[in-house]
Simulated scan of single mutants.
Amino acid sequence: MAVKAPRRIALLVGAVGLVAWSAVHLHAVGASWSQAWRMIANLGWRWPLLLGVVWLLGLVVHTSVLTASLPGLSHRRALTLNLSGSAVSNVLPLGGVAGTALNLGMVRGWGHTGLEFARFVVVSKAWDLIAKLFMPLVTLGILLVADLTPGGHMLLWLLCSVICFVSGVLVTAALLGRAGPLLRLVAWCERVWTRIRPKAQPGWTAATTDLLDGTDSLVRRRWRELSWGMTGYWVLQGALLWLSFVAIHVYLPWPIILAGLVAERLLTLAAITPGGAGVVEAGTIAILIALGADPTGALAGVLLYRAFVFAAEIPVGAMATALWLLFRRPPAQCA
């Protein structure tokens, strides 16, 4: 624990530095923080209410992914898992581990085994990862057709999108029981790492094999529920982002909204800060500005959107966790 504390402090310091740098850079490209805050503050109560409904509806639809990943899990409990885990993840650097530990305690109290929970985590997180990896190439194709791609660096954009897509294909194949290509790639990365650090024994190949054990039968049975839930969730997240801009009277073409959504979802993978705070906002705003969005409008729209998908999850998730603690059964009564 003594080793982890300084790392977390360093991550927090790095997050503050990143936010400060992003603020200065946004001002340099013409974004006004004061005007962005005024755009949000003048919304009244109807827009936040509508945005809140869309946000909650997205979380409800996403429970289909969680219930499909853990047979026997109800939608109400799936929503509690999602909110409580997100609340922890959004307040701690690398908080995903702490959120997963909390969720493990919850599902074991509901009578599920540790093995079932492990498969639940692998399938639900991997299905989310697959969506995030497939969408960049799809979005780039849409932007090309709409003639909305930014000038310069097109080869880099294409290369990154193709790498993401191929990675998504490997993960999908592994979940369906054809893990050979993914395991060979992991083994190669492991060999390279051991050459860089000869004393290291990461065990990545064995760990990946263990994680994938038994997931193929679950995915083959539940792929429809997984796909429907993830598709519906992405549609509602896109609607939330679009409405966030409409609320502040910033109207962007839907391919640019899609690009912003994909950037935001993909950047959440870089959760070195709590919930990716700072990194996600800066990257998403940069993509929108590169595609022609007004800097101040992009800033205000992304901040409003993240107020729901990031900030609102903390108090709502804390309440969900408190209710679980209040009404959970004593361990002796658990199945």
Rank of each mutant, 00 (worst) to 15 (best):
L258Q: 05
H153R: 14
V171F: 08
M106S: 01
R77V: 03
G238L: 12
G141H: 02
A239F: 10
S34W: 11
I289E: 04
L211F: 13
L176A: 11
A31F: 00
S124P: 08
P71C: 10
L288S: 06
L102Y: 04
V60I: 12
L11R: 05
R328H: 12
G168S: 04
G283K: 04
G114P: 00
K4Y: 10
G283P: 02
P331L: 08
V29Y: 08
I40S: 03
W234G: 00
H153S: 14
G85W: 00
D216I: 09
R222C: 01
L267V: 04
L143M: 10
V250P: 01
R77G: 07
G72Q: 07
I272K: 04
V138L: 11
G141S: 13
W55T: 13
V65Y: 05
L252N: 00
Q35P: 06
I314A: 06
N42H: 11
A293Y: 03
S161A: 14
G292W: 05
A322C: 06
W254D: 04
W223F: 10
G105H: 15
T67F: 01
S161K: 01
A36I: 01
V316H: 04
V3G: 15
G297P: 00
A173L: 06
L304P: 00
G114N: 11
I314H: 00
T268G: 13
A290D: 04
V309R: 00
G114T: 14
L66I: 03
V138W: 03
V162C: 06
I272S: 01
D213R: 12
L50D: 00
C334V: 13
W33L: 14
T80M: 11
H249C: 05
L323E: 05
D147G: 09
V13E: 02
A259W: 00
I257Y: 01
G301P: 00
N103I: 01
L182A: 06
L102N: 13
A146W: 07
I256W: 01
I289D: 02
G283N: 02
I196T: 13
G52A: 07
L267F: 14
L148Y: 02
G168Q: 13
L115E: 13
H112T: 13
A239C: 13
P198V: 08
V29I: 15
L26R: 00
H25Y: 12
W324E: 08
L261I: 10
V316C: 09
A298K: 09
R197M: 10
H75L: 07
L66P: 04
P202L: 08
A2N: 12
A271C: 10
A206N: 06
P253A: 03
G278P: 02
A31I: 09
V107K: 01
I9E: 04
C334F: 05
L266C: 12
W21S: 05
S64V: 03
L49S: 10
L59N: 12
C334G: 07
V19P: 06
P136K: 07
Q237R: 09
G177N: 11
V122H: 02
G96P: 11
W204I: 10
L185C: 09
R77C: 05
A23I: 06
W127K: 11
G317D: 07
R184G: 08
Y251Q: 11
P253R: 09
G177R: 08
S64H: 05
V279H: 02
A41W: 14
W157V: 11
S69H: 14
L57I: 14
L155K: 14
V16C: 06
L73F: 14
G278W: 02
T113P: 01
G317A: 08
A98D: 10
A282V: 10
G30F: 11
A271P: 05
W204V: 03
